[in-house]
């Protein structure tokens, strides 16, 4: 009886906390499909705001995806070999490099953006292109890729597997392709989803680095909050949800699959 009471109490508390977190998201989404938010849902349900957002901001959504996948490509091409090199080499130097790669996690995005602007702001064409934002995103997301790949390397004893493949005659490239990448795959996938998700949602850095012609989705969101009807901004949030939630679910499924193995 007493256990039941305790359980019920905990359950209700959990529900309340969850509601506290979920209600704002629900309200925001519902606002995006309401004809007039101040009159409430009885004013009618509409997709006109969603359509309007699409009309005004389709470019920012597209650019966000371009940047997210370009960021992914760079972190894969540079991050996976870097993680392997850091793991294989070991020692103090590798630790220092790892710390440096991780540093952007601790530094405010604004500060990184400012440093990039100071250093490369005067290269006009580069400054005006989306590649400038890409650089910021790569700096910000690289530690997630490197760390999650290194975490896998630490559990599968990749060094001995590498030596095993070498003893069978495989060149360094073959070893990387046949043994190292396949065995690091769970970490690479987890890292990749993290990188794409973070890049799509990144605001701090991007806000400093963007130009009127290189707006990403979160920048467009801020823009619409500042200058549009509340319903339009909320519809924008809705679109963002629709894009980001499948990625989060995929990430979760992947993590589950790893645990089972």
């Amino acid at each position: 009886m007493r256990d039941r009471l305790i359980f019920t109490g905990q359950f209700i508390f959990t529900l309340l906390v969850a509601a506290f977190l979920v209600v704002p998201a629900g309200l925001s989404i519902s606002a995006g499909v309401t004809v007039n938010y101040f009159r409430g849902i009885q004013s009618g349900v509409t997709l006109q705001w969603v359509a309007q957002v699409w009309e005004l901001y389709a470019g920012t959504i597209l650019l966000s995806f371009v940047i997210a996948f370009a960021t992914l490509a760079v972190t894969l091409l540079a991050g996976v070999p870097a993680a392997y090199a850091l793991h294989a080499r070991g020692g103090r130097l590798a630790r220092i490099v790892e710390e440096i790669i991780t540093l952007p996690l601790a530094i405010p995005g604004l500060a990184i953006a400012l440093a990039l602007l100071l250093a490369y702001g005067s290269f006009g064409d580069f400054r005006r292109s989306w590649l400038f934002i890409l650089v910021g995103h790569v700096i910000f997301t690289m530690p997630f890729m490197v760390r999650s790949v290194m975490a896998v390397f630490a559990t599968v004893d990749i060094k001995t597997l590498d030596e095993g493949a070498a003893s069978l005659g495989a060149s360094p490239w073959r070893r990387f392709r046949d043994v190292i990448v396949p065995n690091a795959l769970p970490g690479i996938l987890a890292g990749a989803l993290m990188v794409v998700t973070l890049s799509l949602g990144e605001f701090n850095l991007t806000w400093m680095l963007h130009t009127p012609l290189t707006k990403t989705l979160p920048i467009g969101l801020a823009d619409s909050y500042a200058s549009m009807r509340l319903e339009v901004a909320s519809a924008y949030t809705l679109i963002f949800f629709v894009m980001i939630i499948p990625l989060l679910v995929a990430m979760q499924l992947l993590a589950d699959r790893d645990h089972k193995r």
Partner: peptide, 12 residues
Amino acid sequence: GMVFQSYALFPN
């Protein structure tokens, strides 16, 4: 040909 203490078999 080498046999390692941990065998180093490829899990993939």
